[in-house]
């Protein structure tokens, strides 16, 4: 039986992620854990997260999981979700600037005040609700139509340096990356565990993914 570790560093709703994984992978052992050894030994790793960037980085450091995640990325298939995507970048503008894990080159920025669309109309922040995600070819999109809608709830967005590593984009005021990949790593800004059938399909694809 394959084991999927859901990284628990005390930030956010891990129950929904683990239940959604259990729903799509009944033959897998889904374990919510803060243990470095359990995470390192798992076949696959999911890193969710919610809340402020500074708190998340602090919580990861306090749980002594930064090195665990850094060495896991590059080994097992790894899926970062929402804040679990943002902390992979070099740094975030949140909380007056936070150093993140530097596993994906780029920054995390806040939507502008005011956040305007191309016609000058003001858009609401947080970006809250269902937006279309444009895909670039990747195994994680198996059986998901291009431009399917996923559920978002965020005020900060990722700006990767390397556009070759963008797996998905969204347009809200301007276009930005909402999914990135690098070898065995995949990360998304939206919440697959809250995105109904297409979200569950994405999680199922992760369960089936060999990281290549």
């Amino acid at each position: 039986m394959q084991r999927i570790a859901v990284v628990d560093y005390g930030m956010g709703n891990l129950r929904s992620v683990s239940k959604a994984l259990e729903a799509v992978a009944p033959d897998h052992d889904v374990v919510v854990t803060s243990s470095a050894s359990v995470i390192s030994a798992a076949d696959k790793i999911v890193c969710p997260g919610q809340g402020a960037a500074a708190d998340c980085m602090q919580a990861l450091a306090a749980a002594e999981l930064v090195d665990t995640i850094k060495s896991a990325v590059g080994q097992q298939p790894f899926f970062g979700i929402c804040m679990g995507m943002q902390v992979l970048f070099d740094s975030s503008e949140e909380n007056s600037g936070v150093q993140c894990m530097g596993l994906v080159a780029g920054q995390v920025k806040r939507f502008a005040h005011p956040h305007l669309d191309s016609e000058g109309a003001r858009l609401k922040v947080p970006h809250m609700g269902w937006s279309k995600v444009g895909q670039t070819a990747h195994a994680m999109w198996h059986n998901i139509s291009n431009d399917s809608r996923f559920y978002f709830a965020h005020s900060y967005y990722c700006v990767p340096e390397n556009t070759d590593k963008v797996a998905g984009t969204c347009h809200y005021g301007h276009e930005f990356a909402v999914a990135v990949f690098d070898k065995n790593l995949f990360a998304c800004q939206f919440h697959p565990e809250k995105s109904s059938d297409d979200g569950l399909q994405l999680l199922a694809n992760f369960v089936a993914w060999d990281g290549k």
Binding site: D117, A121, L123, H127, G129, W130, S131, Y172, G173
Partner: peptide, 8 residues
């Protein structure tokens, strides 16, 4: 604008 209005 890319974001659907929600029905709840």
């Amino acid at each position: 604008m890319g974001l659907a209005r929600r029905i709840i």
